[in-house]
Design a protein around this nucleic acid. Sequence first.
DNA 1: AACATCAGTGCAACAGAAGTGCATTTAGTG
DNA 2: CACTAAATGCACTTCTGTTGCACTGATGTT
Lengths: 138, 138
Amino acid sequence: MTEIEKTLQNKSVRPTAMRILIYKYMASKNTAVALTDIENAFDKAERTTLYRTLKTFEEKGLVHQIDDGTNISKFALCEPGCNCEIDQDLHLHFHCGNCDKTVCLTEHKIPHINLPQGYVAEDANLVIKGICDSCSQH
Amino acid sequence: MTEIEKTLQNKSVRPTAMRILIYKYMASKNTAVALTDIENAFDKAERTTLYRTLKTFEEKGLVHQIDDGTNISKFALCEPGCNCEIDQDLHLHFHCGNCDKTVCLTEHKIPHINLPQGYVAEDANLVIKGICDSCSQH
DNA sequence: AACATCAGTGCAACAGAAGTGCATTTAGTG
DNA sequence: CACTAAATGCACTTCTGTTGCACTGATGTT
C-alpha cells in the first residue's frame, strides 16, 4: 500500500485508481487546480467523476476549495496539519494576473478581524492578486 | 438635474433613463447586488444592457465588483470617497450564509500583508463568511 | 431643419462551469 | 459466489457571463 493510499484511507476515502491518479496529479502541482485542468491532464477522464471526486475530497478534508476571483473554483491539497474544515489554518492565497496561477501561502494566516456587533464570522477568504515570484523575475 | 444625474456626469457616464434606474436601485439596497437581482427587479430590462451598464459603472469608478465566493459577481456602489480603482480603500466584505446577502464593511480595511520575496501585490480581496447582524438576532 | 455620427440599447446566440438523474460497473462483505 | 453499496460514465439541464449585429435615439455640425 502506497503513501497516497494510506492518506486517502486515513480520511475515509476509498483509494480507487481514479482517486489515486487525481491525488497524485494535485500533489505534483504546486498550484491550485481547476476541474478543467484535471480534465485536460487526463483526457480519458469524465468530468462528472472528477467533479464528484473533488467534492468527496473536500468533504473529507483532503483538499480545500479556493475562490481566487476568477469565478472558477480551484482546489489544492491540504497540508498534513491542515484543519481547514474546522475553521483554523485559514491561510491566504495568491493569484498571479500574469500566469493565472493560484498558490497557497500556507505560512501566511489571515489576520483576525473585529467585526461590527451582530456579525458572526465562520470562515474567511483572502486572496492577494498581483505578480508571482516566477513571473516577476522576467 | 437630480443628484444622481450629477453623480453620473461627474464620472463621465451619460445619465440615461436606464442608468438612472439602475443606480437608484443599487442605492436603495444596502447590500451588493448581482446582475440577476437587477434583472428580476425590472422585468422589462435586458440582461445585456444591465451587464454593460455595470461594466461601464465599474470602469468609471461608480461601482466596484465583489467576489464573495459564491461564484456570482456582485456589485456595490462606491462610497463618495472611494478610490477602489487606484488600489486604495480596499475594504472587506461580509457574506451571510443564511440570507446569502453580501455587504461592504467600508470601515474595515484589509490589513497589510508581508508577502514572500518576489511576489508583488496589486490588489486584494477579503471576504468574511458567517451570519450577518439581521440573521443573528433570530 | 436636415444630416452624420456615435453611444446606448435590444435581440439572439454562444461558451463554459456547475450540477443532476439514471444506468452500469466496480469493490467490499457475508 | 451472491448481495449491497459505492464509484463511475453518459446524457442532459441550468445559470452566468459574454459577444456580434442590428436598431434607435441623442448629440453635434452645417
